[in-house]
Design a protein around this nucleic acid. Structure first.
Lengths: 72, 72
DNA sequence: TGCTTAGTTGTCATATATGATAACCGATTC
DNA sequence: GAATCGGTTATCATATATGACAACTAAGCA
């Protein structure tokens, strides 16, 4: 499985969970202590996030990291 | 939860799964296309691995990423 | 029309992960 | 003792994630 595909899957997962909570990238990014532009890139699968970044996002979304990386 | 703690948990998980397969850091690292020294640091929780690094390791161990990041 | 909100994208500086090499340690084996 | 094996650690160059800022688009609304 290619790098971009995996990043895309995780990004899509974040986006859908974020939208199901009804919050904007702006707000989610702020909860994670970074800027909306960076959240946009993560959701778009344009970066290869670290364990800690995934952890911060999962905490903000009140889910487990496993919910973000559950594939294959 | 602190960064170091999370990295440590994931590192320990990798180590225990690797040992249960009876392979050395050397061999696992080679399967992931990197050096044993770097695998040592990951298992020791000294780095903050990226999504792709976790994916490569999980593929080599024939497990799912979720098995590595299943905590909290 | 003008204003606001949500998201995207470009660029930047800085930190750090990655990947490699080498030196080292401890245990084991010859 | 010497050699090997598994693991650790230091250091390096390079790539890239992070975090920030700004400019832009598009949609919705007063």
């Amino acid at each position: 499985m290619k790098k971009e595909q995996i990043q895309q899957i995780v990004g899509n997962r974040i986006r859908s969970l974020r939208e199901s909570k009804g919050i904007s990238q702006q707000v989610l990014a702020a909860m994670c202590n970074f800027e909306k532009g960076n959240m946009s890139r993560i959701e778009a699968g344009k970066t290869n996030p670290t364990l800690m970044t995934l952890h911060k996002i999962s905490q903000a979304l009140e889910i487990k990291i496993t919910d973000l990386v559950d594939f294959e």
